[in-house]
């Protein structure tokens, strides 16, 4: 079919605008990665550029020469991300299943109990005081696990997914066959909600991975710093040397390229995983936008 003029005009505009925006969003990533391989000398003399004059891996070398801090913070991040996501998914989907069960009289009350927390909160001061001086969660791994753990929206999205994809009759017939409430959840609900669990799980994992706020509020012990917070301290501090590299005095610090290399090292896993997990996020957004 031959395209009419208006179609041609519209498509031309679309291709141009979309390309421009795509380049605009990608550009900073390119600048970051390229310059993390630039030598300190070329950054100091020529500044950041798209085509550095001298290449070097000094900054990466420095990070991995004394990798204790980095490896430890990687460890903390990995631990809270995996443990937190698994716990969150299990209990979130369990709560979602409970609210899906039609024979439960107070299911809507429970849903509102969760939803209400998104409408009203006690403010940061009260939250901070409660967690740090009432629960004594300051400087513990627990605080890093608990604070980002549950999201009311995610739980409700899971409930909507279960409601929309698993017919009540399936539950009922399982019940007649003698299955208990918990085993219905394990044997039927979990296997059938895999697509939603994958999406919500990845959103939760991303939340844990990128969480710098919780450690900033509640953690002062350097041993417990997750990756994102180490990065935060490096970028926001003028003097890099003390926080990443212990034996800094003996070498001249490539401060500028070090900042970039640290950013790459801490964001790398996300960028690498991105092409494979993107579709689950897209699905997750679509799930969330369907109102239940």
């Amino acid at each position: 079919m031959k395209k009419s003029t208006d179609q041609v005009v519209f498509l031309a505009i679309s291709y141009i605008v979309t390309s421009l925006i795509a380049i605009f969003t990608l550009f900073p990533f390119v600048v970051l990665i390229v310059n993390s391989f630039a030598s300190e000398h070329s950054i100091i003399f020529y500044g950041y550029s798209l085509f550095p004059k001298e290449f070097s891996v000094d900054a990466y070398d420095l990070i991995f020469r004394s990798p204790d801090t980095i490896l430890r913070s990687y460890g903390v991040t990995m631990l809270i991300t995996t443990l937190g996501t698994a716990t969150s998914l299990f209990f979130s989907s369990m709560a979602a299943y409970v609210m899906y069960r039609k024979d439960l009289k107070y299911r809507n009350g429970l849903a509102f109990f969760i939803y209400f927390t998104t409408l009203f909160n006690g403010g940061l001061a009260s939250y901070y005081i409660t967690l740090s001086s009432t629960y004594h969660l300051k400087n513990t791994l627990w605080v890093l696990l608990f604070v980002p753990m549950f999201s009311a929206m995610n739980i409700l999205i899971l409930r909507n997914f279960i409601r929309g994809s698993i017919p009540d009759s399936l539950c009922e017939s399982a019940k007649i066959d003698g299955a208990g409430d918990f085993s219905i959840f394990i044997r039927i609900i979990i296997p059938l909600s895999k697509p939603a669990l994958a999406s919500i799980g990845l959103f939760t994992a991303l939340g844990y991975w990128n969480d710098w706020w919780t450690p900033m509020m509640f953690v002062e012990r350097q041993r417990l710093f997750p990756l994102q917070y180490v990065l935060y301290t490096i970028i926001s501090s003028v003097n890099v040397s003390s926080s990443v590299v212990q034996n800094a005095s003996s070498v001249t610090m490539p401060q500028e390229s070090l900042k970039l290399a640290m950013t790459v090292v801490s964001t790398g896993p996300i960028l690498l995983a991105y092409p494979f997990v993107q579709k689950y996020f897209v699905k997750g957004i679509t799930l969330g936008s369907v109102k239940g």
Binding site: A22, T25, L26, P28, L231, S236, T263, I270, F281
Partner: peptide
């Protein structure tokens, strides 16, 4: 994919940018 990428990084990284 390009446009969606910034969603995945934290504002800490944006401040590095």
């Amino acid at each position: 994919s390009f446009m969606f990428l910034p969603y995945f990084i934290s504002w800490v990284v944006v401040s590095a940018f």
